[in-house]
Design a protein around this nucleic acid. Sequence first.
RNA 1: UCCUCGGUAGCUCAAUCGGCAGAGCGGGUGGCUGUUAACCACUAGGUUGUAGGUUCAAGUCCUACCCGAGGAGCCA
Length: 431
Amino acid sequence: MKDRVYISDISKHADQEVKIQGWLYNKRSSGKLWFLQVRDGSGIIQAVVFKGDVSEEIFQRCEKLTQESSIVVTGKVSEDKRAPSGFELQMKDIQIMHLAEEYPISPKEHGSTFLMDHRHLWLRSSKQNAILKIRHEVVRACREFFDSQGFVLIDAPIFTPNACEGTTTLFETDYFGSKAYLTQSGQLYMEAGAMAFGKVYCFGPTFRAEKSKTRRHLTEFWMIEPEVAFLDLDGDMDLAEDFIIYIVQRVLENRRAELELIERDIAPLQKVTKPFPRISYDEAVAILKKKNIEFEYGSDFGAPDETVISGEFDKPLLVHRYPARIKAFYMKSDPEQPDKALCVDMLAPEGYGEIIGGGQREDDLETLEKKIKEHDLPKEAFEWFLDLRRYGSVPHSGFGLGIERAVTWICGLNHLRETIPFPRLMNRLNP
RNA sequence: UCCUCGGUAGCUCAAUCGGCAGAGCGGGUGGCUGUUAACCACUAGGUUGUAGGUUCAAGUCCUACCCGAGGAGCCA
């Protein structure tokens, strides 16, 4: 009886007879010889069979085999430099569990719309497989980073009541006759969590109903948001820096093969080391001015501006102290220059743009009440949030990392839609 | 919401000045004992996004609409 072996472990079984359960990725023949590329989710291996070596029936099974048919193959593992992976299976037997219908995704090129329409099948392709394994590594690294530092996971609600930040467009749902909205951030709830547990984070889906049609936007994306009591802006930037370094290191350590498969140049990732450059909004504006780029002081940076600014550095860049006017109401003003907010954005290198947004929160009750008024927000909805400033208010900070944007940068991809299993975009709700 | 580009075979794309609708891949048939997105030969496969219009003649020009792409704004 042969033991079932995963292809990722095949090198440990050289010269042994093993059983592989998987699907036919591709096949090639040369007359009385078949080469079957078999995948099982953990990897791909080539199975070889000569006509004279097996029964006529087994050889004919290979002939009628279609792409993505599910199969069980047994044979001896042998090291062979002619095989794509360096190892191949000398086939002794093959069982067809299900003969697949004509598979829509052929080994040649396809357009992104077609592939996204077949996302449920496209996930089987080796490149998509590699990207989502890297995503998994990023998610695991995020959790381990915070877990190992005493953070408590506090999940924020998905349904939220009226109002919130009031900036972005929210998805509205019917909630037993009244309106509820899908969360655009767990941050306000994390502030409550930080006052209860000291260090907390949440990790979950986030929804934005913006009609953004770009390579950097999803309507449903995943965000991890830490929040820490007694932490100022500088400490927040330290945390974000250590966090990103940890994630990138983990991917470099554990997913090197996947990075190679998607042909990611790892040199820029190897440069992600302490310390990251930190510049103020004013310094960033100076860079734009020096490059003769038209920019109105006081406004927010557009995506092309961010590319120019981050292009001056070969590491992730921290830009802090934006004008308070263009930032959310809960941002704390800089006591030394009250028109600036104690906020920070992290811009990924290589033109990938913003991956982190965060900062120090306003902790003074009166100031926060004033800001709610200035932003024309309904005070009643924020009474619970104001309570956090009534009962033992302390300085606190946090940030949010967009998982898909981070994975897009780490993988060096052109579009973030490949970094989530089933992307939700303005024009895509299927499959 | 605005701007730009696009929609031709199952898929990816060609089609010159408006003049017979083409190729590769995939499918089918046959060949090949080391293939690497294998290769070679043959073969089937079309309401050119929809509706109008101009013309002897429209994939090609005009109008409207539908759908898609990625950029702006907004953001992670």
